[in-house]
Amino acid sequence: MSETKAKTAVKAPKRGMDANTSAKIATVLMMFPAVLLLCVVSIYPFLWLFRYVFYDYNGMTSYFTGLHNFTRMFGDTAFWASVGHTFEYAILKIIFIIPLALIMAELMSQKIRGSGVFRVIYFMPTIISTAISAMVFGFIFAAYNGVLNAVLRATGIISQNINWLGDSNTAMWAVLIVAVWGGFGNYMIYFMSGLSSIPHDVYESAMIDGAGGLTTFFRITLPMLSPMFKVIMMLAITAAFKDYESIMVLTQGGPDNRTQVMFLYIYQLLFGTSTTKPQIGYACVLSLVAAIIVGIVTGLYMLLARKLDDVM
């Protein structure tokens, strides 16, 4: 009996260790799939970029070029022009998409009959393939027999067809319309989620105090939406700077590079054209620079948002 007790006493700490080790193993195993995916699809490709920044690499053979890819980048007017277009596109997109999404979220949050149907309609562009929707807009914007021109002519707004995608003055606006149409439903859902988290009694108190609709929106809704607003803005900024798919389908960066944005430029270098071979090494350098640019913009926004928080 005493022997059994002694054995139990000796084994007790062992069971404790086993349980601890088992928990650690379980943690590692639980994390393993996510970590593996992160390494394979995120960290490895990023490290892969560094491998070729000093080379002229065509996908099969790499030729050492030293610092040429970097010096070329500083003097590449086409790239810096594309950076300028990216800023123009992103700023305009955010100026239109965020207020629109917020207004629609506010409207859709009201208990209006049929608002559920509109929610689905507004969100639908988010789940449609960008390439497909851009192709459809290609028909809508067509200068000859295009739907948009037909409507504008029928309503007397224009007398002559506009070459929406082929004219340098209108191409950027055309791609922006597609971007806003395709993205505002998504942000609308985010805003609705934020709106639903604002306690209803705050609105009731405001109403008792005699606050009108606009006052309530600017004094209650917007301040209480602030944390969510910051996240949505950050997502909108990064998404706008990375956009290129619909532009690739609609204009291929034209006319005369008017809608050439930096990630489309990088894509064209990475995969080559019908007469040029891929320039993977240089595309890697530009990818890193583009990532830094997006990172700086996002960082500046976060800094600004924090400063505003302190002030307010």
């Binding site: 065509n58 086409a78 005369d256 590079n257 054209t273 019908s274 007469t275 040029t276 071979k277 240089y282």
Partner: peptide, 22 residues
């Protein structure tokens, strides 16, 4: 020769001239 050019290829550049952009 298969060259790694900077900027647009000849098809795009000359087409811009056809369009009257340059």
């Amino acid at each position: 020769p298969s060259v790694a050019i900077e900027g647009d290829d000849y098809l795009v550049t000359l087409w811009n001239a056809v369009l009257g952009n340059v």
